[in-house]
Amino acid sequence: MTDSKQAPEIIAIPRWFKIAAILALVWNLLGVAAFIDHMMMTSEKIAQLPVAEQALYAAVPLWATFAFGVAVFTGALGSVALLMKKRICYKLFVFSFIGVVVQMFHSFFISNSYEVYGPGGTIMPIMLIAITLLLVRFAAKGNSNNWFS
């Protein structure tokens, strides 16, 4: 009798994988730095912002700040897991994506960030969503190709 379960086919990891994983880590560490900078804003620094930005900063609810933290820290951990070729990177990137979506929901639909920053202020949020979704898909591809342990 033959065993009906066959070992999954392992597809060789492409040469560009490590470069992409390092870029993902750098990107997410920049997000961590932005979050830390956001959290360390003193009242003196806030007072140096234009009045409209001061009001925008003061109006950010705790849940949006929490989503920001979830997005960047799970993204950074996902990137480390990606470099280590661990399957958990997918789940971490999904959490990061959810955090980004929640944060951008606040930015686009609740706050008046568009009025403050104008059309140019939509470029970075759209990039955040696109890159985070790309990382989710990248990790999913790695899982489906059995690149990870």
Rank of each mutant, 00 (worst) to 15 (best):
H38I: 03
K86V: 11
E9R: 11
I11N: 09
D37S: 15
H38N: 13
N146M: 05
M1C: 13
W16T: 10
E44M: 04
Y117W: 06
G31E: 01
D37H: 10
V72L: 11
S144A: 09
S4G: 01
V116R: 13
L92E: 07
D37G: 15
K18S: 13
I98D: 02
L77K: 02
Y57W: 14
A34K: 01
Q48R: 07
A52M: 10
V102Q: 09
T42V: 08
I10F: 13
A67P: 08
S149R: 09
G120C: 01
E115N: 15
R87G: 15
Q48M: 12
L29Y: 07
L56V: 12
I10E: 04
V136M: 04
L82S: 05
V51R: 13
K45Q: 15
S144Y: 08
L133G: 15
L49W: 06
L82R: 04
A33H: 02
N145F: 11
M41C: 06
I131H: 04
M40R: 11
F73G: 07
K45D: 10
F17L: 09
N143L: 14
E53I: 02
A20D: 09
G69Q: 10
F105G: 00
A139W: 00
F108C: 04
I19T: 14
Y114L: 05
I131W: 03
V26F: 04
F73V: 15
W63K: 07
A34M: 07
M104W: 08
W16F: 14
I13Q: 12
V116A: 03
G69A: 12
L56D: 00
T42K: 01
F148L: 12
T122I: 03
F148E: 12
I46V: 15
W16K: 05
F66S: 10
Q6L: 11
